[in-house]
Design a protein around this nucleic acid. Structure first.
Ligand SMILES: Nc1ncnc2c1ncn2[C@@H]1O[C@H](COP(=O)(O)OP(=O)(O)OP(=O)(O)O)[C@@H](O)[C@H]1O
Length: 913
DNA sequence: ACCAGGAGCCGATAC
DNA sequence: GGCTCCTGGT
């Protein structure tokens, strides 16, 4: 055995001594293909880490021979961290990363071979949408009918399934040639034809722009390996052990990637004398996953990858882990009961030695606000009475939109929290603008980013200028940037446009020179861009209070760049941009050991792989969770159920499940029925603090109490007051609790900003993973103290330099106005579940008419000065003036307190009284 | 070319 | 409640 001298050799005892029988077997397993299948919390990740250490020390592998794939950057950093303690600092040099990061690395090295130049740009979803929109406009495609989103989803499906442009074209549009100028889509007999055409053009333009989208990172790497045998050979020799975590959420492209990297189909024979995978033959593959936790089908994850593993890989073995080390029996029972409702799965026997533990606590609130209120106060109670640390509590929800009311509840109760996900820092407009400059500098062929910045800040280069350059450049087969460079050769260009164009070109050239000279100091390039472009200046001059926080975001961007620079030995501008493209929500999560003193709020999806002593699953309602769009279809519903399973199994000791009887959405209130998942949990596991909401109780009649009412009583006194008095009628419009606490005062300061983006979110933790150690963010010592202080002080932790607070404005709470929407009762009893509840009107609009050809057929001549009219949003008004302009007639109405409005009659939602 | 205001459209989950 | 598109006016 030839161990890497830098690897600390661990004894078997150290590596498997504290594992159970199956775990130990999995760690030591010798063979080309191993699936560690297991239920939640059975130690899969732990086993995977130990197995890596085992391979290194017992099979004599070198760290460079290992490729370990995790689901998130965060998980990669954590695994690397654990490996460091096991085998020493060499771990930092190992390939432990997500599929995407690994592929970027491969493509940066060898992408040239398939036409990707080294500075290639990674488009995010917004960029891709812009590109599709551009194509759609060029091709005369009705984006109302075929939304860019829809088209992109289809393209993504193609890619995840490794279906290439050539195939789709051959099948659906054999005559189309991408890049044909002046192409217009005519009558499409077949939607597939349209998709195929856009897909082809989209790929064509990506190639011209030297850009890739997220899916391409995988797909093009597969292409690279498949078409360039010597490159494939290189990686096959190099990676002798490939390990993949969360294998149930891999898609087809990723599956093929693993196969290609491992050389499973190369037909090469393994060296017979090797202890492990040896030097030749297919690499040894270990995958880890739980089919019941597959929750990313919507982005192509294919559960059959894990289900068929044994058939797919020669000599594959499966080892099941069955002991759960995380949760109490009660929590496991609930999880098992729920997931048992999914059809066509192999039942698992998962057990725990932990004992029953506390019952699950249930709570049915009247509204989402009250749900949040109850949760917040319960968390505070746990903290104050039971000494639970805030950072040991997580609040989870199905969709990001739900976080708002929860945040408000927590703020009111002075519970410090940290929100993970939602709108991301790098997606903010000003940050995206600055990044677009950087992209355009690194890769001027990138037309999307170049176009984006052409007139940001305003330079008098609008749509006309843009299209003139585009047309001229297209005709000559040049890029947009080349068009700009040669703008003075464009005919018919006025000096009014030409001058700013030339200035723009000069500025960009200058910035490019600067960037080339300072490639190792991205932060300096950022600073230069901010100054030279005028981005900063425009915002600084602005009086809009929002722009103040935008300035701070930009300065934050600069400190992020500085930090990247410090933590990355071979820092480059392109490298920096790459890290910004690949950040995920989960990167905002605090480090494992860290006590932030804050409750964590996140979606169920981001919660995957995590664990918390106390978990709140919120919004347990039909339509919310399971989500309305997923309720019709069995397979989507199954996925929702798996998501519920994931959620439940995040809890170690205490699980809460809550729901609201009324939830505001689209500004309207809808009645929500209890989630069917609640019915699927055995009732005796749940201690309902409040089983029915006020509305529901009123309907089923007071006298009877709740439907079988086992545990109604205890703990009810607290909310009894709310129920009877604040709960339903008054309480909805204007909550009676807390007196005037609903007021603005508690929103003051920077609480929003610091809790969302502050702390380690975008500072240290984001970048630790990209290279070396995690920048010692351990400096952020846990602080306790008054909740309020905790919140406002947190913004200064971590990164040196600019802390930023993010606009407080516009986030004032609005108590939902109900306007009697639910007088018409669905007489269902509260726990009947199982039925679609939401009274949203069925979407049956066949052709959404564009606003252009919209006409309410009102005649201006029917209106006279002094007439009373009623407007959908402004209410009652008096006609002041009418202007007969035919189709574009204008009516001026005085709406009293809402002011005087000039309305276009054709589209105005008004009615003559 | 740019701004303001109005209307209508939507909206899951995310690398 | 939030975002984008549209319009008319500057
Ligand atoms: N042999 C063991 N002894 C004690 N604790 C263990 C053992 N194995 C795992 N654990 C603990 O159990 C918990 C769950 O482990 P881990 O996160 O690896 O599970 P998992 O299978 O990846 O879970 P999930 O699939 O739900 O994300 C962790 O807190 C881990 O430390």
């Amino acid at each position: 055995m030839h161990n890497d001298p830098e690897v600390i050799v661990r004894s078997p005892q150290e590596l498997i001594g504290d594992l159970n029988e199956q775990q130990a077997q999995a760690v030591q397993f010798r063979g080309p293909a191993l699936l560690i299948g297991a239920g939640a919390g059975s130690g899969k990740t732990r086993v995977l880490t130990r197995r890596i250490a085992w391979i290194l020390t017992r099979f004599g592998a070198w760290p460079s021979q290992i490729l370990a794939i995790t689901f998130t950057n965060k998980a990669a950093a954590e695994m690397r961290e654990r490996l460091s303690t096991l085998i020493g600092p060499v771990a930092q040099r190992m390939w432990v990363s997500t599929f995407h990061s690994a592929c970027v690395r491969i493509l940066r090295r060898d992408g040239e071979r398939i036409g990707l130049k080294s500075g290639f740009t990674i488009y995010d979803t917004a960029d891709c949408e812009r590109l599709v929109k551009l194509i759609a406009t060029d091709f005369n495609i009705d984006v109302k009918r075929y939304t860019p989103r829809q088209i992109l989803a289809r393209i993504s499906d193609y890619k995840n399934g490794l279906t290439g442009v050539r195939e789709t074209l051959a099948q659906y549009a054999p005559d189309f040639r991408p890049g044909t100028r002046g192409f217009r889509i005519g009558h499409i007999g077949n939607v597939e034809e349209l998709y195929a055409i856009v897909y082809a053009e989209y790929q064509h333009r990506l190639a011209l722009a030297n850009a890739v989208d997220f899916d391409d990172l995988i797909v093009r790497t597969v292409e690279l390996l498949r078409t360039q045998p010597d490159v494939a050979e290189y990686y096959r020799r190099r990676f002798r052990y490939i390990l993949v975590d969360e294998y149930q959420d891999t898609n087809h492209a990723q599956y093929v990637l693993v196969r290609e990297l491992a050389g499973v189909d190369s037909g090469e024979r393994p060296s017979s004398d090797a202890v492990g995978a040896g030097r030749q033959g297919p690499a040894w593959i270990t995958v880890v996953g739980d089919s019941d936790q597959s929750i990313y089908a919507f982005r192509g994850a294919d559960i059959s990858n894990i289900q068929d593993f044994e058939q797919d890989f020669p000599d594959a073995r499966t080892i099941m882990l069955e002991q759960n080390y995380r949760s109490t029996q009660t929590i496991l029972d609930a999880a098992n009961a729920v997931i048992a409702h999914n059809e066509g799965r192999k039942p698992k026997k998962l057990w725990t030695a932990a004992g029953k533990g506390a019952p699950i606590t249930g709570y049915a609130a009247d509204t989402a606000q009250l749900e949040a209120h109850w949760i917040a106060h319960e968390i505070r109670r746990l903290h104050e009475e039971e000494g639970v640390r805030y950072s040991d509590v997580a609040v989870m929800y199905r969709a990001n939109a739900q976080s708002r009311s929860l945040e408000e509840g927590l703020i009111q109760a002075h519970v410090p929290y940290q929100l993970i996900g939602g709108t991301k820092f790098y997606e903010r407009r000003e940050v995206k603008d600055a990044l677009a400059y950087l992209q355009a500098i690194v890769n001027p062929a990138d037309g999307i980013n170049m176009r984006r910045i052409l007139n940001v800040p305003k330079r008098g280069l609008g749509a006309r200028a843009e299209s003139m350059v585009t047309v001229w450049a297209d005709e000559r087969g040049l890029t947009f940037w080349q068009g700009i460079e040669q703008a003075d050769r464009i005919e018919g260009m006025t000096t009014r446009t030409l001058n700013p164009l030339k200035r723009f070109a000069a500025m960009m050239t200058q910035l490019r020179t600067f960037a080339a000279e300072h490639d190792r100091q991205p932060s300096q390039v950022v600073a230069e861009v901010l100054a030279q472009s005028g981005l900063l200046e425009e915002l600084q001059k602005s009086t809009d209070p929002q722009d103040q926080s935008r300035v701070e975001n930009l300065s934050q961007l600069q400190s992020v760049a500085a930090e990247y620079e410090q933590n990355t030995p071979d820092a480059t501008l392109a490298g920096f941009l790459e890290t910004t493209a690949l950040v995920a929500d989960s990167d905002q999560l605090p480090d494992e050991a860290e006590d932030t003193g804050k409750v964590t709020l996140m979606t169920l999806h981001t919660a995957k792989g995590l664990e918390y002593p106390v978990v709140f699953l919120t919004g347990m309602e039909q339509g919310t969770f399971p989500h309305s769009r997923a309720m019709e279809d069995t397979s989507e519903l199954s996925e929702e159920r798996r998501l519920a399973y994931v959620g439940i199994t995040r809890a170690k000791r205490h699980l809460y499940i809550t729901r609201a009887a009324v939830r505001a959405q689209w500004g309207r209130a809808s009645e929500m029925m209890p989630s069917q998942f609640l019915d699927e949990i055995p009732d005796e596991l749940i201690d309902w603090k409040r089983r029915e909401a006020g509305v529901e109780r009123m309907r089923s009649g007071w006298g009877r109490g709740s439907d079988g009412g086992s545990s109604y009583g205890r703990g009810d006194d607290w909310d009894a007051g709310l129920d009877e008095f604040g709960g339903w009628d008054d309480g909805f419009a204007e909550p009676s609790y807390g007196g005037s606490a609903y007021g603005r005062s508690s929103y003051g300061s920077s609480s929003y900003g610091s809790s969302s983006y502050g702390g380690s979110s975008y500072g240290s933790s984001s970048y630790g993973s990209s290279s070396r150690g995690r920048s010692s963010s351990s400096a952020a010592a846990p602080r306790f103290g008054s909740a309020a202080r905790e919140r406002s002080s947190s913004s200064s932790s971590g990164n040196g330099g600019a802390h930023f607070s993010y606009g407080v404005s516009g986030s004032s709470p609005t108590s939902t106005r109900s306007s009697s929407r639910f007088g018409s009762a669905a007489s269902a009893s509260s726990r009947s579940g199982k039925v679609t509840t939401r009274r949203t009107s069925p979407k049956s609009s066949p052709k959404p008419a564009s606003a252009l050809d919209k006409d309410n057929r009102l005649d201006i001549n029917d209106f006279h000065v002094g007439d009373k009219v009623s407007h959908d949003s402004f209410g009652l008004g008096t006609v002041l003036e009418t202007q007969d302009k035919g189709r574009n007639s204008i009516i001026t109405v005085d709406f009293g307190s809402d002011g005087v409005k000039r309305l276009m009659l054709r589209v105005a939602p008004i009615e003559k009284l």
